[in-house]
Design a protein around this nucleic acid. Structure first.
Lengths: 378, 378
DNA sequence: CCCACTCCATGAAACTGTTTCATCGATGAT
DNA sequence: ATCATCGATGAAACAGTTTCATGGAGTGGG
């Protein structure tokens, strides 16, 4: 185990200077700082004083917080339930903000007394997540499959259930089925698209690019999905929305324009919690148990931490070969009241378009895509 | 500033022993431990080494976590948004679990590098919250008014808007108005009851104990509220449910038994987020902005921490007179589609009761209150 | 050009808290 | 009675931080 005195000797400075560098004090010349940092990283230095306080778990994300989404909230709650028995404390951390310029992510975690991290991954933050896991710091990635490196992860397979959802629609006679995904292109949404495409191809239905939409994961996004689809000359008879809020928004908009669900249009949503029971009709949807995801990820992380402690690497510094744990929970399809047989008469397009134009005239909300009158009347 | 050596001298032991006591090591005799602790508390000791790491904010609660509720989730999100600029990190802490037997809450916070706490208060945890604030540790209580001591708090006044909500119903002609509150009797729900009673008394309507219900803050709770109220001989024409989920459950149950909202029954709910827009008809409700509550509480706490730092009390130890900040946000009434004129014919009781018995026969869910057939037929 | 003066980088030493190892006495088994 | 063991304790070594002193580079006035 290296200490400040060794680092000092190796970089030819005093321990004072080493301490200053490590604590980011201003009064150090750039060259000396550089030299000390090099020695520090080479030696894999970790502070020994205050080491005992390293009993925190981080729920780490990068960039904007999405803590208020039911998904993140439920994950947090799942983690929190595990905490009580474990003796760990939970820290919520924006890793990109918390890291000092010079340090590795592992060093940052150590500095904050964190001995393991749950990494919430979305596509934009993937590079960061990959860096952290590559450093060998005990971490479990939630909601992404980092097949490449040596990352541990827990994801929820929504591809199979998404396929089943679409096949459910196909069995009901639907052929023109739309899918609406989040504009942020994360792993989960991509998987749901894959399930959708799989179902279509299994039943010999050609995918239509016009029926593959992206919209914000919000009620407003769902509203837009319905409006845009109703503008199509060949309107779909069913929509799969891969986000809870978007699904609710779509239901609202259907009601507003007088399209009956499921008589005129079938809707399959997605649910992290129990939104599906709060709306009417209860929503057919692909479900995942986000709280279970949090609890499971936490227990995986505890395993990793224990393992690191046993292998004499309590500081979480990079190891040539650290253990990898990978696991998948499964999402599932729940059939409720928003899916039904394909309409015999194509009532939706006509009714929808007509009422859409009426509705818009009296509505405060304007569609974000400027509607072309000629399209509306088709 | 005291240190271990002073504590050691005062309690007549070595610094080793003091360190052992402070770190809760087992090999200390009870008497010595007692003596050292006394000296420690008397001296207001705070560790100096590792002091710089005290840059965390705690979101502290006691007992069961409610992190997955939209209210707590939104508060957290509000806090998280403030964090980025502040340079603090957020710790989620179950104070009753995290505290070691001997230490004060302030010491516990310090041990964990926490320089300020946001305390989520509910009635069962009030004693703990009061203790913490009495210690003078920089803390802001969210959602409770601790008028007594010197506690800083931020609450959201829902009493006025609750009164307005009931008056809105009275103006629509309603006279028999029920209120359903959470079984856990926290400050907010009590306030909403007060607003309800105020409105009744202002309009010379006598409060009826039969119309004041308690039910769990869940969809199932809301279902029960409707069932129990329909059992009454003199059925209400409007209900105010002080919890979002309960309101949604009540709406569901109304739909199931064929009671139309608002034609047969007016419903006013409560909303922390935007549930009101996700259901149909959009729900008339008293709203509060939980994210704003989190953000505001955080900014208040930052003020307290800065103040403590300026007054040379960076450790957050008890001060004879620490500053107190108190603030209220306001909830507000939003009128949407679930409230309407009082029904001219008392259709609900008859229709509801009839369908209730039919519905129950075919339903898996049983009411928790055993229904008396004679009551049903009235 | 020289001489204070200032400012900055740096190190020695003082200081804080933790951990290791040795000691001492009580207790219990033989 | 003797020896082994174990628990409580302290001295000293150790790790890291902070204070204060130092020396040199730059600067401005004479």
């Amino acid at each position: 185990m290296s200490n400040v005195r060794q680092i000092a000797q190796q970089s030819g400075v005093s321990i004072t200077t080493v301490s200053r560098v490590l604590n980011n004090h201003p009064r150090v010349s750039p060259e000396v700082r550089q030299r000390v940092l090099a020695a520090t990283n080479a030696a894999g230095y970790a502070p020994n004083v205050g080491r005992k306080t390293a009993c925190n778990i981080a729920y780490a994300f990068e960039g904007e917080t999405t803590l208020d989404s039911p998904f993140d909230a439920a994950i947090l709650a799942g983690i929190a339930r595990g905490l009580d028995e474990s003796g760990f404390d939970l820290m919520v951390l924006n890793v990109s903000r918390a890291r000092l310029p010079y340090e590795t992510y592992s060093q940052m975690f150590q500095r904050k007394g964190i001995c393991g991290a749950l990494l919430r991954s979305a596509n934009p933050s993937r590079p960061v997540v990959e860096t952290i896991t590559a450093e060998g710091f005990p971490a479990v990635v939630i909601g992404d499959r980092l097949e490449g490196g040596r990352a541990s992860f827990l994801d929820c397979d929504s591809r199979g259930p998404s396929r089943e959802a679409i096949e459910h629609l196909i069995n009901l006679g639907h052929r023109r089925i739309a899918i609406a995904m989040h504009v942020v292109d994360d792993y989960d949404h991509t998987e749901r698209l894959a399930g959708y495409l799989e179902a279509l191809s299994r039943h010999g239905i050609a995918a239509d690019d016009n029926l593959i939409l992206r919209a914000p994961a919000s009620r407003a996004g769902g509203v837009q999905v319905v409006r845009r689809l109703l503008n199509l000359t060949d309107c779909p008879t069913a929509i799969y929305l891969t986000d809870p809020f978007a699904a609710v928004g779509a239901m609202n908009e259907c009601r507003r324009i007088g399209a009956r669900v499921p008589e005129d249009l079938s809707i399959i949503g997605f649910d992290d919690g129990d939104i599906r029971f709060g709306i009417h009709p209860e929503m057919t949807c692909v479900c995942q148990d986000a709280a279970a995801l949090g609890a499971e990820a936490f227990s995986m992380l505890c395993g990793l931490i224990q393992n690191a402690a046993l292998s004499g690497n309590p500081t979480g510094l990079p190891l040539p070969s650290h253990p990898v744990v990978r696991k998948s929970l499964r999402a599932w399809l729940e059939i409720h009241g928003t899916t039904g047989p394909v309409p015999t008469v194509p009532a939706l397009a006509a009714a929808g378009s007509k009422r859409l134009s009426v509705g818009l005239a009296s509505s405060v909300v304007r569609p974000s895509t400027p509607s072309n009158p000629s399209e509306l009347s088709t």
